[in-house]
Write a protein that binds this DNA or RNA. Structure first.
Lengths: 207, 207
DNA sequence: CGTAGTTTTGAGTGTACTCAAGTCGTGTGG
DNA sequence: CCACACGACTTGAGTACACTCAAAACTACG
């Protein structure tokens, strides 16, 4: 019933429309949930980090693509036995409801970003979110200096933010030129002052 | 514990940040769930039609604005007794989980619209969604002629689609000039051929 | 008939897109 | 060890789609 599986970076975990015979959760790595239009336009609709749930109980068909952005370790459960267990454990529904509602809130905040924020605000918001999730404690310190890895290509960021990869590149370099961030190794971001970054997101909390 | 309340069109039902002491569901009318930035930019993150749930069990503070777009009748439950009832009725969690997951899917499809669709595709998608929800059966008939009311101002549509009201107006009139739709009374839409409209959405299913 | 709200239309602008070339970094094979 | 190739990233020039600002037309209502 339960198994661990490793997916190399860049590979597909599930494709939209495929039968989906398992559910699971991310143990390690970064996976993305996305949607693609016939002409190739792509929109990421979720960033799956460790502890995030994959799949939907009660649905046999995948609705979105799931891809391993970095190498991903997934803890998988076969769907049928998992659902029997779910029904035998009423308390679990409550926990899953909590998780679904949290994701729904996050999706709605993302809608504000996609619909109304400028390219610069989108980039700043993404950096702030990733900084928060990867590095929860230091964000709160007084000086506000934070360093973290951004395990996403420019293209993945673009798909997440509803931009082109060129615009992502230009805006990241603009933030760097303005002294908001520093780049050490292309994918490693150093934020000098987290409040300064927050001011660039356009919104107070989240971003 | 349970009561019905009527909100006139254009009034606020809940404001983000306010204490929220009830949950409920829409009985009649159209309400909107939205977020506003300090400088006034606004993004609708949900369209609440009859049968849709309002509020989040377990949270005392509203995270989004809820407004009556048309006159709205809400069936309300006080939060504390509702939550006691929820805990005494484990089966209810399952039902609420289903609803939350459906909303999450809808939110994710909306993210594709906001991030990647053109103004024309956005309008066509909105019209198709409202047509489906208000008028489920006729959408499926052979000829594909559908008539329905669009109880939204141009501004509300703009906030939902991440556009300006001027762009909404221009695109609606463009669809009319191209013979995809007809306008009877500004807010009443007549779709000649639903498949033609679907072709304008950029995606297969939903829109 | 006048006023306020909504919608349409016009003209000009700007942000992000497209297309294209060039640079950097890393891994491979001669 | 260097040459090369490949992918990721950067940078530039030109364009287009949607935005902004402004005015006019339509609607509803007192």
């Amino acid at each position: 019933m339960k198994s661990y599986k490793t997916y190399p970076a860049g590979t597909s975990i599930v494709r939209a429309g495929d039968p989906l015979d398992f559910v699971g959760s991310v143990v390690q790595g970064v996976a993305s949930l996305s949607q693609t239009m016939e002409d190739g336009r792509r929109q990421m609709v979720g960033l799956l980090l460790p502890s995030d749930f994959v799949g939907r109980p009660g649905r046999a068909m995948a609705k979105f693509d799931v891809e391993a952005t970095s190498e991903v370790i997934l803890c998988q459960f076969n769907r049928a036995p998992f659902e029997r267990f779910l029904h035998a454990t009423p308390h679990l529904h409550e926990r899953m409801l909590e998780m679904a509602l949290d994701e729904l809130d996050a999706a709605r905040e993302w809608m504000l970003l996609l619909g109304r924020k400028t390219a610069r605000e989108k980039i700043a918001s993404l950096l702030l979110i990733v900084a928060k999730r990867q590095n929860a404690a230091p964000v709160l310190d007084g000086i506000g200096m934070v360093k973290f890895d951004l395990n996403l290509t420019r293209e993945a960021m673009a798909d997440y933010l509803g931009l082109t990869l060129e615009t992502v590149s230009r805006q990241i370099n603009a933030l760097k030129k303005d002294g908001i961030i520093q780049l050490e190794k292309k994918r490693q971001i150093c934020v000098n002052n987290i409040d300064q970054l927050r001011a660039e997101t356009g919104t107070d909390f989240e971003g």
